[in-house]
Design a protein around this nucleic acid. Structure first.
Length: 673
DNA sequence: AGAGTGAACCTTTTT
DNA sequence: GGTTCACTCT
């Protein structure tokens, strides 16, 4: 078998029975190991592809892995192979075991904005003003779900704490409502299968038999519930391959437990541990800088990355006046570099901590006519026009989805105002029916004005008709008819002042239809609800085939950059309160921020530039900034300072910031007294 | 019912 | 600085 594997990688590939932990440093070829191992299992060990599952965290990673595996196998061999995200795996389990779980076909998946809307609704009933607490509540519930804590346990754990008790009560209520809406949220996609497997050993056995070899990528990102699912599926057979790097754990904030890496030792005593320490990506200098930084964090296993790609150039550190100047410097540096080296634009990446930081760079790039590609930011599915259409599609396959109903019952306007909707809701709760079902009942007529009743009747009749049409095939035709029936294009032009805005929105809608069409071609027998469910799990609609995507500067957050590599990396906004983010400093989770910086540094193959600003606008006010403590942790000899002024140390700048703060405080106390 | 105006909040990172 | 939410006026 043809391979370009070093001895350690090879032993990881050939370890096929029993549990195996691969500690893979940045750039050590972990994806290569996983893909080669899948190919090895199929080609050399004669294991059927349908018994193998590889699980990743992002769609992007899954996509990438799929293409790389399929280049190693022919179509027949790869048939039935599962490469998916955790959430898609969970979705498939739920879909196959629907009746055991007590859900109806066509169930809805709620994304976080749907869930927030539901929470807000539920809180309105109990409290007066939900404000922005709804999101915090949802966050807490999500933490519980990812720690596999059920509502009753949450209530116990709250132990009288008012805030937590309220959240736990809400958790219970929220779950209950999701169930009656025939809906699940993101966390349920993992949690429900675990619950199911606990209570139904026969079902679990079926799945264990189906998924005999499990490979998990980015294992340090798993939460407790996901680990539970892994353990259940692997069972006594124990054919588990796990790849991870504790230094790249950057998702603890949403419940990931990097300890899961070390927990494996306890849970699987026969665990084979293989370390991959040769880096095939970066220059020696970049690795040295990265290693030095991360050595400030405590480590369970010592790991030393090395590379034989030459020592390379120093890391540049650029000091700038403000965020505007920073963008200017970075772009002109980039331009200059490109002029000298003549590389493609996609070799350049600008990485930052928070999405909002992209703004200045976007503007500057546009001014210089440099094409860029922004990944992340607002998801396609957050657009109101997409949410509208998705709500229609959800209601079409799941009449119990009250949230979808509420969103679109009067969008576009049907003269069914809040008053009528509230009366309908009261009636529905009384009868224990969903809004849609209640709206179809004759008894409702006496509770509502004749006009509103007639409109509702018309609306539900029309939806039912479309749903019926959907069942006898051609879901795409139904979607198209739906959009033209509601004359959505007209609604967009009426409700948007700006003509171009309206056409842009309509184009988004058409894009959505295109996607549905493509998915429908891929699996012609899947009902519309399946297509909608899959769509909900996709973050963005940009397909890999975008024409000039290959030649644009890449802009993304550090989180989004994980797993990628670029010849030239600009790590911008290297400032206290920004790269160790302020809340992380307050919550004493700076170690995770350090790993974030580490991830950023190790994305670079040849060239790394860090930049920071001395002043920066925040909430419209200019504030002093100190450069990141992480810069001080780097080996001085490998840094090349540039930019304005002489080099000043961090303490000095910080002192300035503190006197500023003290002045403010004085002003406040003076004002009070 | 819907549009238009102010106030308050905010910015971590995502399936 | 920008967005979202609630209130008020037409």
């Amino acid at each position: 078998m043809k391979h370009d594997l070093n001895p350690r990688q090879l032993s990881a590939v050939k370890h096929i029975t029993g549990p195996c932990l691969i500690l893979a440093g940045a750039g050590s070829g972990k994806t290569r190991v996983i893909t080669q191992k899948i190919a090895y299992l199929i080609k050399e060990c004669g294991i059927e592809a349908r018994h193998i599952a590889a699980v990743t965290f992002t769609n992007k990673a899954a996509r990438e892995m799929k293409t790389r595996v399929s280049s190693l196998l022919d179509k027949q061999q790869a048939k039935g192979l599962r490469v998916s995200t955790f959430h898609t795996l969970g979705l498939d389990i739920i879909r196959r075991e629907l009746s055991t779980l007590g859900y109806q076909p066509g169930f809805s998946i709620y994304d976080s904005s749907d869930s927030t809307a539901l929470i807000r609704e539920l809180m309105k009933q109990a409290f007066a003003d939900p404000g922005n607490i709804a999101e915090q509540m949802l966050w807490q519930i999500s933490r519980w779900k990812s720690a596999f804590v059920q509502p009753e346990q949450a209530m116990q754990q709250a132990n009288g704490n008012a805030q937590l008790t309220a959240a736990a009560a809400l958790y219970e209520k929220y779950n209950h409502h999701l169930k009656t809406y025939n809906a699940v949220d993101f966390d349920d996609l993992i949690m429900l299968p675990v619950l199911l497997f606990r209570t139904h050993p026969d079902v679990l056995e079926r799945w264990q038999n189906r998924l005999r070899h499990l490979l998990v990528d980015e294992y340090q990102d798993t939460n407790a519930t996901q680990y539970e699912l892994v353990k259940q599926i692997v069972g006594v057979r124990g054919n588990l391959t796990v790849v991870g790097d504790d230094d790249q754990s950057i998702y603890a904030w949403r419940g990931a437990q990097p300890e899961n890496l070390f927990q494996l030792k306890e849970d699987f005593p026969q665990l084979e541990i293989i370390k991959l320490e040769q880096n095939y990506r970066s220059t020696g200098r970049i690795l040295k800088v990265a290693n030095t930084l991360i050595s400030n964090n405590p480590h369970e296993f010592a790991k030393r990355l090395w590379s034989d790609l030459g020592f390379g150039d120093p890391v540049r550190v650029v000091r700038t006046r403000d965020e505007e100047h920073e963008a200017e410097q970075v772009i002109s540096e980039l331009n200059h570099h490109r002029f000298v080296h003549r590389g493609p634009l996609c070799d350049y990446a600008i990485l930052y901590r928070g999405n909002h930081q992209s703004r200045v760079f976007e503007r500057m790039l546009r001014e210089h006519d440099i094409p860029y590609y922004l990944s992340g930011g607002i998801s396609f599915f957050a657009y109101s026009e997409i949410k509208d259409i998705m709500a229609y599609l959800r209601l079409l396959s799941n009449p119990d989805d009250d949230n979808a109903f509420l969103r679109i019952v009067n969008t576009p306007r049907r003269e069914i105002g809040p008053g009528s909707v509230e009366k309908l809701a009261n009636y529905a709760t009384e009868r224990g029916h969903s809004l849609f079902v209640a709206a179809r009942e004759l008894g409702l007529a006496s509770h509502l004005g004749p006009r509103a009743y007639k409109q509702l009747e018309h609306f539900t009749g029309w939806i039912s008709e479309l749903a019926h049409q959907c069942e006898n095939g051609e879901p795409i035709e139904v979607v198209k008819r739906l959009i033209s029936d509601i004359d959505y294009e007209r609604w967009l032009t009426d409700s948007n002042k700006d003509e171009s805005q309206a056409t842009r929105k309509m184009n988004n809608v058409l894009e959505l239809v295109n996607w549905l069409q493509r998915m429908h071609k891929g699996s012609p027998d899947a009902p519309l609800s399946d297509l909608v469910a899959k769509l909900t799990l996709i973050d963005t609609l940009d397909n890999g085939e975008d024409e000039d995507k290959g030649n644009r500067v890449q802009l993304m957050t550090l989180h989004a950059a994980k797993g990628l590599e670029f010849n030239n990396v600009y790590l911008v906004g290297m400032e206290e309160d920004l790269l160790p983010h302020r809340t992380s400093i307050e919550e004493e989770t700076v170690e995770e921020e350090r790993r974030l910086a580490y991830v950023g540094i190790t994305r670079a193959k040849k060239n790394l530039t860090m930049s920071f600003a001395v002043k920066r606008k925040r909430y419209g006010e200019v504030i002093d900034c100190a450069h990141s403590r992480f810069i001080d942790e780097l080996p001085e000899d490998d840094l090349h300072w540039a930019g304005i002024g002489v080099q000043i140390n961090r303490e000095e700048a910080q002192e300035r910031g503190q006197t500023h703060l003290a002045n403010l405080k004085n002003m406040l106390t003076a004002g009070n007294g």
